[in-house]
Design a protein around this nucleic acid. Structure first.
Lengths: 243, 243
DNA sequence: CGTAGACTTGACGGCACTCAAACAAGGTGG
DNA sequence: CCACCTTGTTTGAGTGCCGTCAAGTCTACG
């Protein structure tokens, strides 16, 4: 089969269930325009009523909300292979925005084609549904981390999660992965101030769990990092099952 | 149409899209056993692989996780008409537990029947999917609240949310609703200590936003409460749309 | 070589946590 | 019917994590 631009997405699905070639073809055929976005631009905005859903092909993106006083909270970090707004197919109106953390390439899926899939391909529909359920599962884990984990644990947990998710996307290089995020943005994701992010990172680096040079995170002690974070990848549902 | 035990659920769907009587009938027919659970018992447990999904008919329930040191974080509060574990249809393994906050009546939906709906009733399938998307939307709002709102705002926001959601379920009586939760449990939901919950509640009551006597919350100043919380119900997606 | 953006450090303050005890209310059994 | 017990709420004291403010360092880039 030819490598297509949605290959990462197909691989992500295949980590959860068997995908028939007919289904893969449906997804390839339903793909629309490919578009690039500059760093820090919005892929979708709160209040929009998109007619397409956005599959991230390369780059990182964040879902976020801005409060009246200008404070920002990131509610999700998306990696290649993620649909960043599949939910807009049914929710219709966006209740948050999505921004490009780096330069991003995306593929647009027109809602009418996705809707046709829901009419004609029940199993594939369930897999699309599943992707939104896994997103929700990750959000629950973030709630747990924000509510009950220490700042160090929370940070370690995020790094564990990204290491695994980027691995699924084929974007880890042994113990290293590229994570081009500023400490301010990290604070917006974790619900802390940038200053505190800085101090927590120093503490974790001091424990020799990882290094973070430039945009590259290098995991020095994966077991230690997981233990520090109490990380259990179960919530990522990386099992092949009949769904 | 006869009032059925899943009436609250049907009403919840009808607040989001037109529901045909054939679809309503499918849902009535797919319903399985009706079961009661005592207060504080678990409806589903982390690690389970349920063969049914659980529709809450009466009572309140919480999704929660327990950390190794015994700390608990509630990730969702469910009201009648909510499916508390519809996601187990596709996720298969539960990554968190669900507990009865009060005595609960539930109806079990066998997964094979739900799966048949996904094979034969695309529009109804989209509505079920939508319910899980709205749950996810609520979770995002909790992340925002935990990360960036003050404790007082966060508490006010939760009360606004429950006032609206219980309203959809037909469980508000003018300005009052029953909310039988302890301050310890509230803390587990908001990510704070019980002591702090107590102090925050005193502060909000001191602003004459609501009273909370026994298990009854009485909203004295709905506009004031919304403003205090910066509450915008958009994320609950209470609009009838073609989905 | 200068500038902008990101990172780092220090001082200080406050929100929220822990520990501990007192108070209130409902349920139970003698 | 009341003493008692359990569960939940309230209050106080002390501590600490983390936020803000501000200044200084480093690095990439024009």
């Amino acid at each position: 089969m030819p490598i297509s631009r949605i290959d990462t997405f197909l691989r992500k699905l295949e980590r959860r269930d068997r995908l028939s070639s007919a289904e893969a073809e449906l997804l390839v055929d339903a793909a629309g325009d490919e578009v690039s976005f500059d760093m820090d631009s919005d892929l979708v905005r709160e209040g929009d009523r998109p007619a397409t859903s956005t599959l991230l092909v390369s780059g990182l993106a964040t879902r976020y909300r801005v409060l009246s006083d200008g404070q920002r909270q990131i509610t999700a970090i998306h990696v290649p292979g993620d649909f960043v707004d599949l939910h807009s197919l049914l929710l219709r109106e966006m209740d948050h925005s999505v921004a490009a953390l780096t330069r991003c390439r995306i593929v647009r899926y027109p809602h009418e084609r996705l809707k046709r899939i829901t009419e004609q391909a029940p199993h594939l529909t369930r897999l699309l549904w599943l992707m939104t359920l896994i997103d929700a599962s990750i959000q629950r884990e973030w709630i747990v981390a924000m509510g009950r984990r220490s700042a160090g644990q929370q940070m370690a947990h995020l790094l564990c999660e990204l290491y695994v998710r980027l691995g699924v996307a084929g974007l880890v290089d042994g113990p290293s992965f590229s994570f081009p995020i500023t400490q301010v943005q990290l604070g917006d994701a974790l619900g802390m101030s940038a200053v505190h992010v800085n101090r927590v990172l120093q503490e974790l680096r001091g424990e020799n769990l990882f290094t973070w040079q430039g945009q590259t995170v290098r995991v020095l002690d994966w077991d230690g990092l997981q233990q520090r974070a109490e990380f259990d990848p179960r919530y990522l549902h990386l099992n092949i099952e009949s769904r």
